[in-house]
């Protein structure tokens, strides 16, 4: 196998409190290859977000990475000095946070938020950066005129796509998505994930996708890890997890997927929709 894009080896993260030490991530190994979508599924508190934060070395006390290493190509992420770490974040690895639609600054117009990111991480002139922002908006199918709007003037799904667009503007090789669609309803969720999938095919990047919704993960990811109490219990292709789960906990999560009777159904749409056009 080729060298993976990202390789996590024996990673442990501890939360240190006055009373004791809580191990949130416990000796986890994880590889992500170029152009691969890897998923981490598990209940809240299982350590999946903590693991994601480690990749960008975002932890602040009381969280400490106590063991293991993270290699991104030939760099050891945990050994990067602050200046290089700033370049590494967003340029190489982007992150879409949980409830990303609330991570836009509410009092700043959207074009300004693009410019902030592009100025901090590139040498583009103002004009070039604006052109970049317009390209990105087209990429996620939002009218360019929306750049002059404030976040609250856009719907939740649109804001989510704008956050994606800002993240993609720097062409990262890896994007970490932490519950990117949890706050959205199912139709919008499907629209956004299908769009990410298309963008990935066009631009080529890897994704670390984190959610507690196993059904969604099975649709979206190439490989899936099932996490519980800080450990990865099982790691396999989507086919393996879906048809040949090895772990009892995986089976339990699979059984909890609602809407089984809907799977594999195809849909007939009313004729009027074509006629109306």
């Amino acid at each position: 196998m080729n060298q993976p894009l990202l390789s996590i080896q024996g990673l442990s993260v501890d939360y240190v409190t006055n009373q004791d030490v809580f191990r949130a991530v416990d000796k986890v190994d994880l590889d992500i290859a170029d152009n691969e979508i890897v998923g981490l599924a598990g209940e809240s508190g299982c350590g999946k977000s903590t693991l994601a934060y480690s990749v960008l070395n975002l932890h602040r006390p009381p969280a400490f990475i106590t063991q293991g290493q993270i290699r991104y190509r030939d760099t050891s992420v945990l050994d990067l000095p602050t200046a290089s770490l700033d370049r590494f974040r967003w340029n190489e690895v982007g992150m879409v946070f949980q409830s990303a639609m609330n991570s836009l600054n509410p009092v700043v117009r959207i074009d300004r938020q693009f410019l902030d990111v592009l100025h901090a991480h590139t040498d583009l002139t103002r004009e070039a950066a604006l052109a970049r922002a317009e390209d990105m908006m087209r990429l996620v199918d939002i009218p360019v005129s929306r750049l002059r709007d404030y976040p609250h003037q856009c719907s939740g799904g649109m804001r989510q796509r704008i956050v994606m667009a800002i993240c993609l503007a720097l062409e990262p090789r890896l994007i970490i998505m932490d519950e990117p669609t949890t706050a959205l309803d199912v139709v919008v969720q499907r629209e956004i994930l299908q769009q990410i999938h298309e963008l990935k095919q066009r631009l080529g990047f890897s994704v670390l996708f984190i959610t507690h919704d196993l059904a969604l993960m099975l649709q979206f990811c190439d490989r899936i890890g099932i996490m519980r109490q800080g450990r990865i219990l099982e790691m396999g292709s989507r086919d393996d997890i879906l048809h040949r789960p090895q772990n009892a906990y995986t089976c339990q999560l699979l059984d909890a997927i609602p809407g089984r009777h809907l799977f594999g159904r195809t849909w007939q749409w009313n004729q009027t929709e074509e006629a109306a056009l």
């Binding site: 139709v187 994930l193 099975l218 879906l242 997927i257 609602p258 809407g259 799977f263 159904r265 007939q268």
Partner: peptide, 15 residues
């Protein structure tokens, strides 16, 4: 139908 067709279906990948 749109709502029903958007329910995540693990047997069909986004590809």
């Amino acid at each position: 139908r749109l709502l029903l067709s958007s329910v995540p279906d693990p047997t069909r990948s986004f590809a």
